[in-house]
Design a protein around this nucleic acid. Sequence first.
DNA 1: CAAGTTTACGATTTTCGTAACCATC
DNA 2: GATGGTTACGAAAATCGTAAACTTG
Lengths: 298, 298
Amino acid sequence: MDLRQMEYFVALAEENQFTRAAEITRVSQSGLSAAIKSLEDDLKAKLFIRTTRRVELTAAGHALFPHARNLLAEANAGRDAVAATTAEFAGALRVGAEQCLGSVNVPEIVERFHRRHREVEITFTQAGSGDLLKRMRGGDIDLAFVAGTSETTDPQLRLTGLDHVTLATEPLVLLTPPEDPLASQKSVAWNDLQDRTFIDLDSTWAIRVVTDEIFAKRRIPRRVAFTVGDIHALVDMINRGLGVAIVPQSVSRKTIAADLQTLSLEQRDPVWTVSAAYAHSERASHLTTEFLGLLEPR
Amino acid sequence: MDLRQMEYFVALAEENQFTRAAEITRVSQSGLSAAIKSLEDDLKAKLFIRTTRRVELTAAGHALFPHARNLLAEANAGRDAVAATTAEFAGALRVGAEQCLGSVNVPEIVERFHRRHREVEITFTQAGSGDLLKRMRGGDIDLAFVAGTSETTDPQLRLTGLDHVTLATEPLVLLTPPEDPLASQKSVAWNDLQDRTFIDLDSTWAIRVVTDEIFAKRRIPRRVAFTVGDIHALVDMINRGLGVAIVPQSVSRKTIAADLQTLSLEQRDPVWTVSAAYAHSERASHLTTEFLGLLEPR
DNA sequence: CAAGTTTACGATTTTCGTAACCATC
DNA sequence: GATGGTTACGAAAATCGTAAACTTG
């Protein structure tokens, strides 16, 4: 039983699939399989029931899960506590983030950064990517987590002239109510969506801008009947059967979307891309570097 | 950063010495040294200040310590939670333990056993070894953690006829107040103790029986002026300068004894030995096996 | 039969212990 | 100079990834 096994265990419990969990934890599928097996041998208990279709926690696995989470959280807290005694940072850091960042959990990093550097005055703003980038160009934000797609042409979403790094990419998917006529299919073509009623965020958010662009570019009319301000409200309205929505794949994996149907989109071209953009100001650059350092590694 | 490193780290932080911590964690001294070094490299912070005389936590080490403890506790809790779902134990287990068991922490195991097997009615009795063994022979206890020395002849403390396993051995030492005339020495001969005033437990406890035996066998008179019922009271009275005491080495390492002087005894022959004795009754044997399994391994 | 998991196996990396070396009281 | 920590290095073990075999819906 070690921390690496706990990471694998948590990822597998959350993804319910070896292949996806292996991608997230960045090992080969066989490596993940072997690690889980060795954990099960160690604990002398089966943790997952496997079929080729689904992987599910056993009672023993359910019992272990919260402890595994605590273990990982405690390990991070330990790292942070040590870093807090060594690191000598001061000043202020202004962070901004989009909604729908999927696999990139910015609030968690804000918390960890704050634990490490209590002297740094950190501020956090959730806003649309266009808005964030404008503020960054105006010098009002030091670090922005924004999203877009590979084919975005909207000038407000371009990262030209800014230092930035790509953090994650994932496909866009269609989210429908379970009783939707399309729900029996596994995938759908853009063209087949023109008669549907859509739910979407308002146009301050990147997912709306990007989706509008995609339909416009393909000259497909789209009817957005319901406009909401946050992604949970969006999923809630799909649950109520009011329409469908285009979202990044990670949204479809949230528990609130468990009952919904996820359809992949033919031509996977426009890929949802999450990036961090940062001003290379003298004042904040070492802080942004430290912040970004808390993201993936370890 | 892994759980093995945390074990090593905690052991070293508690022992303040590589050699002793390595014995406790059962690795070579060099292995421990390398593991701590790799942990420090990983966290990019020195955790200990080393001199050849003493090893002390740095600020970073102090920051990590509680998290390391939590990590180990959480790992055990995880193991227990899993075991609780698999194991099928029921019935009752009656455990007894001496005071002064040193490295063997019975209450902790009682707790873990209880977490694993809530259906088992566990009872715990703290009492002297002689008493416990009598009760065991009478069938009133299933498992007893007792102590004695290699040269014990007292029939009440003999384990003959009982299944038992040796759990730990350690030397006996002399504990004196810091201002004691002997305090400058590193060791002392039994013969030089005949004029001293002793503090000791009452004769229901093994440490008293054993010490009396040692002095009697060597025909050295001993004056026990203060008789107490528990080991903390004993150490407290030494702290007050009222006398000296023979105790197992592990007692001298407790924090309450931090200000006291520890002298090793010439001729290390009588070695303090902690054993677990158990009836091999049909009813309880699998429970005692499970209980003992929680001791050292993993 | 197709998507997904386990098994087999060789290569790489890590870990561990012995023994020699080095530092401090 | 004795106690105790680190370094060097070879042996052993664990980890990981590719590819083939297997399982299930």
